[in-house]
Amino acid sequence: MSAQAEVLQQAFTLGYTYTRTTGPVVGRFLTALRDRKIVGIKGSDGKVIVPPMEYDPVTAEELSEFVDLPDTGVVKTWAWVKHPRGKHLLDKPFAWAQIQIDGSDIPMIHMVDAGDESKMSTGMKVKVRWADETKGFITDIACFEPA
């Protein structure tokens, strides 16, 4: 045998090598984010759900009635992250919050950059801080901030 045996090589990228559509409901919400707008969807009972769900959480009915909403809302519950983890998107203390977007009934979860825990309270008003560049991801909302 030769000392210089051929070493077989093949490039390999670990990851998803396909793309997929997010569909007419999730896709519509994400596309609206790219345009710096928030849309909700009406559930079977008429309540406005944000982010929109494809099917009603109670009746399982297919949902399709979209509602344009502002980029402001109210904190329904919150938690203060003193020590952000490496994966967290804010690298300083921040709050997680359930935020009821004005004109909606079902709150969404996102981050609030309030600077200090003492600035946080249930019922406080917040508004979206948009990312510098929007791409059609949930992270187009960089976070919320006290309004």
Binding site: V26, P51, A79, Q98
Partner: peptide, 20 residues
Amino acid sequence: YYLSPLWLDTVSSAALQARA
């Protein structure tokens, strides 16, 4: 699409529930 890209961890979601 809505939550895992935010890296909402299990302690944080439990804390939201505790506050509620």
